[in-house]
Design a protein around this nucleic acid. Sequence first.
DNA 1: AAGTGAACCTGAAGGC
DNA 2: TGCCTTCAGGTTCACT
Length: 290
Amino acid sequence: MPELPEVETVKRGLEPILMSRMITRVELRRANLRFAFPDGFVGALEGSRVLSLARRAKYIVINFEHDLSLIVHLGMTGRFTAITASGKNNLGEFYFATGSGMTADGPHDHVVLHLDNGTKLIYNDPRRFGMMDLATSSALHEHRLLKDIGVEPLGNELSADYVAAKFKDKSAPLKAALLDQRIIAGLGNIYVCEALHRAKLAPTRKARTLKRGDQRLDNLLRHIRDILNEAILAGGSTLQDFQGTDGEKGSYQQRFLAYDREGEDCSCGGKIKRIVQSGRSTFYCPTCQK
DNA sequence: AAGTGAACCTGAAGGC
DNA sequence: TGCCTTCAGGTTCACT
């Protein structure tokens, strides 16, 4: 589900809960999510103290003392819920509820982290497309999940020249190229649709048609950055029931101009169309996106 | 080699 | 009401 803005929102929500805390106990309710939890997962985390949190693409990285990192991916439906002494605090997509009597017994509560201040942090993931793995902090970028990830779209490395070089000779549709995490990190189906709509570029166009020096490429990158920043400010989107840290609903969904708007009017007078590209829905306006 | 589609898994929503 | 089909924010594997 979550794309870069939602993952960033969850990471920011986890920060005050986890920072400087020690994990005293780890409950694993099953042996795997997308893949098996690594050997020694529980033992490595128990007794470890959190130093910092980071995000890379759609991965949340929790750094501990002694060169240990926990890499988490929320997949499509992963969410964190913190139960503190004062009640339940939801960090991901969920609902807000209070009451210290809440327990971690939902059918898809797969991991429970018990912290040294009594807080329980629950990872819930119905579809189990999420992932958790351990890594060596000092060699984080060499981890198999992270080593081939491309540039962060909100960092300084994302430039038109970089993208043009990656798109050169690419016959894949622009939509597919933008979803490729090896080129730009963190873009997902929604924000790619929205950015292409804002940039008035057809998702079906071959990536290589945007060449070095083409102003439309600068324009597209500007829209990508803008849309991600706006979404982060809004606390992520609310497809279904995404919510920010404090139970406040993310409000970005209301601003979608193309995504999930099949048949509706585009501001240009055309109609939003839904097509399928590499197995995923693309929403765009054939009238103004060229 | 690159590009497309299927697979992974569960739940929600829509059609009949 | 209930059964069946389709679809979902992601990633990765297996084909052509």
